[in-house]
Computed example of a mutant assay.
Amino acid sequence: MREIAFIRQNKDKWLRFENIINKNNSNPDELTKLYLHLINDLAYAQTYYKKSKLVIYLNDLTIKLFQKIYKTKRQDTNQFFFFFRTEVPLLLYKYRRYILYSFIIFSVSLLIGVVSAMHQESFVRLILGDHYVNETLNNIENGNPTAVYKSGSNWGSFIGITFNNLRVGLSCFAFGVTGGIGTCYFLLQNGIMLGSFQYFFEQQGVFWQSVKGIWIHGAMEIFAIVIEGAAGLILGASILFPKTLDRITSFKNGLRESIKIVIATMPFTFAAGLLEGYVTRYANDMPIFLAVFIILGTLSLISYYFLVYPYIVNKKILSEIGSKK
């Protein structure tokens, strides 16, 4: 059968499947019947239309259905662990393009900050403010470039820093309702700030001292903000590009799934706050190998969860689907 004829024959059925999958009160028996239909259609498409986008569409639809069936059969298993171990990673895999877009936007804005600070001396003061720049210059003269992180108590710093990071991340996400424009602005703003901030320390000849102090907590803090930016882009795309769904349903789905991704960043945001409140203040006196170990360790941990682990979970699910065909 030609691909176009296969699509025409089954299109209405697949759209009906999408609507049923999106319902919160779907019948488990009904879902199982749909699943059997879908894996047969997927197997046929993989056999005769290997390079078609139809295979990708049916594969995504099958994974969503498998995930929903899997959740209904897990009443005796801890939902908390399922959320972080399976549900969120599958969403991260599904929306991996938006994570890439968020990293690109942030990286470009960081480069803009570096180049702008390099060619315009007043740019750093414009972005960071005179008070912060003057205070940091004074700290550099006293031999402690990151002394600003020593201000306040450990507990007070942790609380204040964590709430600020949550505010920034949630704002970056929430402004996705503007079609993603607000999210792009927040990513641009924070990227330019970070780029000019780091170049400022390079100008003063204390770049590596600043890296040791800032990135102990910054690896997870910045990474989490970029992921929250990706969630904002997902929310914006659900409004602008509803695909086969009506716009309201698409928005509800996008909101629900992007919120889950934001929730997954929160443990890392809290961990970054703990590091900034309790560890960063001692970075100046810390052995370089210990600082590098913490930076690479935290970066590896969050990178694995948001970038690598989703592929592992998706591969496992596909393997289970394949074994049931």
Rank of each mutant, 00 (worst) to 15 (best):
293 F>L: 15
256 R>Q: 04
304 Y>A: 11
299 L>Y: 11
249 T>S: 13
252 K>H: 14
276 E>Q: 12
309 Y>V: 05
271 A>S: 15
262 V>A: 00
257 E>C: 04
304 Y>V: 13
282 Y>G: 02
286 M>L: 05
289 F>P: 07
280 T>F: 04
298 T>L: 10
298 T>M: 14
258 S>F: 03
289 F>I: 13
255 L>I: 14
285 D>A: 14
306 F>S: 03
289 F>Q: 02
273 G>A: 14
289 F>N: 04
277 G>W: 03
282 Y>T: 10
278 Y>P: 06
312 I>F: 05
285 D>T: 13
255 L>D: 04
308 V>K: 12
251 F>K: 01
305 Y>K: 01
311 Y>A: 08
313 V>G: 02
281 R>L: 10
316 K>V: 15
310 P>T: 05
249 T>W: 03
292 V>L: 05
262 V>S: 00
248 I>Y: 08
284 N>W: 11
283 A>S: 11
268 F>Q: 02
261 I>S: 00
257 E>L: 00
272 A>K: 01
274 L>Y: 09
286 M>A: 05
298 T>C: 15
301 L>W: 14
272 A>E: 11
293 F>V: 10
290 L>F: 07
259 I>F: 05
297 G>Q: 09
307 L>T: 00
260 K>R: 03
250 S>W: 08
247 R>I: 10
270 F>Y: 14
281 R>I: 12
263 I>K: 06
250 S>D: 05
292 V>H: 01
251 F>S: 04
313 V>L: 02
312 I>S: 08
303 S>Q: 11
249 T>G: 09
309 Y>E: 02
288 I>Q: 01
254 G>F: 00
286 M>I: 07
278 Y>W: 09
252 K>E: 07
277 G>D: 08
303 S>I: 14
291 A>N: 02
255 L>N: 13
265 T>H: 02
293 F>R: 10
276 E>M: 14
264 A>T: 04
248 I>G: 06
313 V>I: 11
281 R>S: 09
267 P>K: 09
285 D>I: 14
298 T>H: 06
279 V>E: 08
276 E>G: 08
302 I>C: 07
313 V>S: 03
285 D>P: 13
255 L>F: 14
251 F>H: 02
272 A>V: 08
307 L>H: 03
300 S>Q: 15
295 I>Q: 12
266 M>H: 10
265 T>F: 01
265 T>S: 05
271 A>D: 13
265 T>K: 02
